[in-house]
Amino acid sequence: MADFDNVPRPGSLSQEHHGKGHRARLRSRLLHSGGDALLDHELIEYLLALAIPRRDTKPLAKELLDNFGGLSALLTADGESIRKFPGMGETSAAAIKIVQAAALRLLSEPVRENPVLTSWQALLDYLRADMAHLVNERIRVLHLSSKNQLIRDELVSEGSIDQAAIYTREVIKRALELGSAAIILVHNHPSGDSTPSRQDIKITKDICDAGRKLGIAVHDHIIIGKDGHTSFRSKGLI
């Protein structure tokens, strides 16, 4: 399997000396003025320069952002799709994915360490960063203790571009196994529209009814889309 991290792009060798000076200026702006001093393509350009030090990475950075649809979409894209992009390889793809991993770790910290219901905006920020740009639908269940501390964040299903399966019996069974006092259902709409479907509403009602009989509360069902999110509780659907 070919790795294109160290394959020169046309004209890159002639631009090497210029690239070093340019990277030094980017580095100086970053360190002295912070991340806001760099444009999106400059962030990716400098990141790729660390993984591919002997190439001019500015054109590649711009092509990646154009192809994937922006910074957020690029960072959350599937690693294999990034690796296969012309001019990329395992090392440069991993450099991009490590940024997402670090960002998610940072965003999830208040969710993991504080009661979820008192860290609601932090939870939404974390879920949007993780799921808003996924190309396939994923369903997750957040299991909470009686003090609303996060016990487990589990991926329960991954499907096609518009459908993933969730089964009431399996959700409730797992909640009983973990001793969950409450759960929060989460899934994304790859279409970008977070409006609940009739099936979304029905399965949520079924899980709420089943949980209620066993003392397991369903605090919310959150749908994540590029347009934002929809909370079933806020919409009066729970």
Rank of each mutant, 00 (worst) to 15 (best):
S72Y: 01
N188H: 02
L117G: 02
V111G: 02
D200C: 03
P190W: 01
M88W: 04
V218R: 06
D153Y: 14
E177P: 00
L178A: 10
L214D: 03
E113S: 15
C208D: 06
G35P: 03
Q100C: 10
N6Q: 14
L124E: 04
V156D: 00
R152Y: 12
N6K: 14
F4W: 12
R233T: 11
E137H: 05
N188M: 02
S197G: 00
K20A: 14
I151W: 06
K20T: 14
S108F: 08
I201L: 07
A37G: 08
A132D: 01
R112E: 10
L60S: 03
M1F: 15
G79L: 09
S108V: 07
A129H: 05
G236N: 06
L134H: 09
K235N: 12
L155W: 03
L237E: 06
E158N: 09
L124D: 00
L178V: 13
L65I: 09
G225K: 02
A101C: 00
I96W: 01
S14K: 08
N136R: 14
I216Q: 02
E45D: 13
A129W: 09
R233M: 01
L30E: 05
D227L: 01
D200P: 02
S72W: 05
L176E: 13
E113M: 09
A73I: 03
R212G: 07
F68I: 02
L50A: 11
L104D: 01
